[in-house]
C-alpha cells in the first residue's frame, strides 16, 4: 500500500494522491485569504454610511395643559404635522403624514385628503379612497408629571385610542 507521504516522494507514479501541489495549495490559500479579507473589509465599509445616531429632534413634544383643550377642540400643530383633538372620550392625536408616500394631508369637511396622490381618509383617519395602504397613524398622547400633555410622534397607537380626561 502506498501512502500520500510516499506519493510525495515519487510524484510521477502516484498521480492519484497528488491532486494539488503544496506550492499551488499555498498560493491559492494566500489568494483566497486576500479575497476574503477584501470582502470582509468591504462589508465593514458598507456599514459606514448607516447612521448610528439619527440627527432628528426628539419625537416627543409638549402641547400644553388639558385646560387648553376644552371639549370639542380641534387643533392642528403645523410644524409637528399633528392634529390634536378633545371630545367627550378624551384627548387624541392624529399624524397628518400620509401613509402612502409621506405628503402632508389637509383637513377637509369629511376627513382628510392628501394632495400628492389623492388618498382620502375619514374623520378617524381610516382610508376611504386612493392609494394609501393604511389609516393615518394615531399617536400616543400622555400626561406628564407636571400636568402637561405630550405627544409621542414616534409611537403609534390603535385607531380610536384616547387619553381619558
Amino acid at each position: 500500500m502506498t501512502t500520500p507521504q510516499e506519493g510525495c516522494a515519487c510524484p510521477l507514479t502516484n498521480q492519484a494522491y497528488k491532486k494539488i501541489s503544496r506550492r499551488d495549495f499555498l498560493g491559492l490559500a494566500a489568494m483566497w485569504s486576500c479575497v476574503a479579507a477584501w470582502i470582509l473589509a468591504a462589508l465593514g465599509l458598507g456599514k459606514f454610511p448607516k447612521p448610528a445616531l439619527l440627527p432628528d429632534v426628539s419625537r416627543v413634544f409638549k402641547i400644553g395643559r388639558p385646560e387648553d383643550f376644552p371639549v370639542g377642540t380641534v387643533k392642528i400643530i403645523e410644524d409637528k404635522k399633528v392634529m390634536v383633538q378633545r371630545d367627550e372620550g378624551g384627548f387624541s392625536a392624529i399624524s397628518l403624514i400620509c401613509t402612502h408616500l409621506g405628503c402632508i394631508v389637509s383637513k377637509t369637511e369629511k376627513g382628510f385628503a392628501c394632495p400628492c396622490h389623492g388618498s382620502k381618509f375619514d374623520e378617524k383617519g381610516n382610508v376611504v379612497g386612493g392609494p394609501a395602504p393604511k389609516a393615518l397613524n394615531w399617536l400616543e398622547i400622555s400626561q406628564l408629571p407636571n400636568g402637561k400633555l405630550a405627544v409621542n410622534a414616534g409611537k403609534s397607537v390603535p385607531v380610536g385610542t384616547k387619553l381619558a380626561a
Partner: peptide, 21 residues
C-alpha cells in the same frame, strides 16, 4: 410643512408616479 400640490417629479419619472398612485 406645506406640500407642493401637485408634487411632481421630473417628467421622465411621472409614468412611475402614475403607477405609484
Amino acid at each position: 410643512s406645506v406640500p407642493e400640490n401637485p408634487a411632481k417629479a421630473p417628467w421622465y419619472f411621472l409614468g412611475l408616479q402614475e403607477l405609484v398612485s
